[in-house]
Design a protein around this nucleic acid. Structure first.
Lengths: 204, 204
DNA sequence: GTCTATATGCCGATAGAC
DNA sequence: GTCTATCGGCATATAGAC
């Protein structure tokens, strides 16, 4: 007998595609405005569906944004996995920061929301998000330790401070300032911020 | 004949003291949450007066926050003026960043609101704020140029990028991360961030 | 599942007594 | 100028037809 699977699968695929579109719009909007300022109407009209339909996919605004942030986190993990193992640890860290900055410069949701956003409270109460963030942090922390052992990252800076400093590039306002200035292309902005992050402002 | 001045002055002094208290509470609250998330009820209850009374002092929420930001800006200018003229330009820049970080670590309103805050739109439309910010920027820009001529600041980094990088410390999330960690005292946090800002992460 | 229409609650701002 | 009480609007979330 014929299996009904294809038909169901098609419906599910449509469902997932719709959800994917919703998440993508949410990511873009969260990059443009804060969690508090973004409304469900914004998302609905961006996707092109009625607001009520959103609630068939996500139970609440917090739920939607949590899902969006989890997706970003997953992409971050996937990116880290692509960094080849024999790359020097310093280059892996540079790659991470470049990825963060490229998200930021294209107005996609940053990996971390700005600190005093209402979204931060939500995420810090979400076990799945925290677990994922912890795993990523462990991976990066290992690279930091290796880089410090090699002497490529300053060993005088505590590893935790290095980690936070890297993560903070995910919502670095310098990117927005430079973008508004219109003087630099996106790629240049990324390189400039990357440079000041690792090399500092003081002459060497 | 007796002048009525003292009595009037006393009332005015009370009025100003009240306004000062309102502005101070606003500054603290704006440091803790975003402009969008802060409510006039928050401010009122923090000051200990009724919400309606706020509107006798400030015409709107935007007005109140604009006044708060102008006050901060003025304090920043006053601080810059205290930096003795014969200090090396690099030390003046360090002093500026230290001042910004000290504000941040004590949860006072940062000099600059985080980029995607609704407050940013308000401020960027305010001539007085923009003029003040411009004047401060010119002063700092001069120091940057001097420091680059001396060779203490990396001349390869465009002055504008240096300026933005310094300003961005006003809302650096690393401070909040480290504060939440509870592992470092406020003064240590300031020094750590100051160090990574000027010296970078890479070993020298 | 998608829509229109609506319930519910919060927040900025105001009215009006004192 | 301070208060209590309230308006008006907007945003989250839901009801109910299709």
């Amino acid at each position: 007998m014929q299996t009904p699977k294809p038909r169901v699968s098609f419906k599910e695929q449509m469902h997932l595609a719709r959800e994917e579109a919703i998440l993508q719009s949410t990511c873009r909007l969260l990059g443009e405005k804060s969690f508090d300022a973004m409304t469900m109407d914004d998302v609905a009209s961006a996707v092109g569906i009625a607001k009520a339909s959103l609630y068939k996919h996500f139970a609440s605004k917090e739920d939607l944004c949590r899902a969006a942030m989890l997706q970003i986190l997953e992409r971050g993990r996937a990116y880290l996995a692509t960094l080849s193992a024999d790359l020097p640890p310093l280059d892996k860290l540079r790659g991470l920061v470049r990825w963060l900055l490229e998200r930021l410069v294209t107005n996609e949701t940053p990996l971390l929301p700005s600190c005093n956003s209402g979204l931060r409270t939500v995420l810090m109460a979400d076990r799945q998000y925290l677990d994922g963030l912890m795993e990523v942090s462990d991976q990066i922390g290992q690279w930091i330790t290796e880089a410090q052992a090699e002497g490529t990252i300053n060993p005088a800076v505590p590893p935790l401070v290095v980690l936070y400093t890297l993560f903070a590039r995910a919502c670095d306002p310098v990117v927005g300032f430079l973008k508004d200035g219109g003087q630099y292309a996106d790629a240049e902005i990324v390189e400039l911020v990357l440079q000041t992050c690792f090399e500092g402002l003081r002459a060497r």
